[in-house]
């Protein structure tokens, strides 16, 4: 018994030193921690350290805006592919429900520069809220597990009127796919809306107000279902042996 265990331990120690000869494959799990917010299709990417999808305090790119206002990740994916990133689009095959998680693999091949991880996804129902993990450092030793708590950001591109509307960039209101249209997590209707203006820069989301009137009131968001406190998501990354 001693012999077997000792050799196992030795093998583990050896493999730590030889990762560079193999491709880097990561096991990733994304958890929607919220009580009532759906995430639109996730965009997950490993990329070099000089790439970032957004920066707090700066104006959002038009492709970030398209993701944050309507869940369209195609533009950001194109941006990432142009800098040789490894991109995983929509691993949950659609919306990631409150409390749900999705697990998948990301393989950066022989790349020595894809050392950073970014994850973004629009939060529904919000006007331009998104979960944002920006350029986190990926694990570097085999078996190393890292847990990132992810906060909610506001893209600053659309006024937070908290009303049903459009997912198109520049159009007011938020889109209402399936579970946001009806059911337990549905947005309300008939709100008069908050008179707000787009902030103009990416920042930590101040949260939604909502109200308790599902067929009127000021907001189409429910104060008892759709509010959140940070963190809103958890990303768990392990560098697997291969």
């Amino acid at each position: 018994m001693n012999k077997v265990l000792c050799s196992l331990v030795t093998a583990g120690a050896l493999s730590l030193g030889s990762t560079s000869a193999f491709s880097a494959e990561y096991d990733i799990t994304v958890v929607n921690l919220t009580r009532g917010i759906h995430f639109t299709p996730l965009l997950v990417a490993a990329h070099n350290e000089s790439t970032s999808l957004f920066s707090a305090g700066s104006t959002a790119s038009s492709n970030l805006q398209a993701m944050a206002e309507g869940g369209d990740i195609s533009g950001l994916a194109t941006d990432l592919n142009s800098v040789s990133a490894t991109v995983v689009e929509n691993p949950a095959s659609g919306l990631l429900a409150p409390g749900a998680s999705t697990s998948f693999q990301l393989n950066t091949g022989q790349s020595t520069t894809s050392t950073r991880l970014s994850v973004v996804s629009m939060m529904l129902p919000t006007n331009d809220g998104f979960i944002g993990l920006s350029s986190a450092t990926l694990p570097t030793t085999v078996g190393q597990r890292m847990v990132f708590n992810v906060n909610a950001y506001d893209a600053g591109t659309e006024a937070n009127n908290e009303l049903r509307g459009s997912g198109a960039p520049g159009q007011a209101g938020f889109p209402t796919p399936g579970p946001v249209a009806s059911g337990t997590y549905a947005a309300g209707t008939g709100g008069t809306g908050f008179s707000a203006t787009a902030e103009g820069f990416v920042h930590i989301h101040r949260g939604v107000l909502g109200d308790t009137n599902s067929t009127g009131g000021v907001s189409d968001i429910s104060s008892t279902v759709h509010r959140w406190l940070n963190p809103v998501a958890r990303v768990i990354v392990t560098l697997r042996a291969n």
């Binding site: 921690l33 009580r35 409390g99 337990t184 279902v225 959140w228 406190l229 809103v232």
Partner: peptide, 10 residues
């Protein structure tokens, strides 16, 4: 709203 542990929304 669901019989699941989740983050509290305050």
């Amino acid at each position: 709203i669901a019989d699941e542990v989740r983050m509290h929304s305050g």
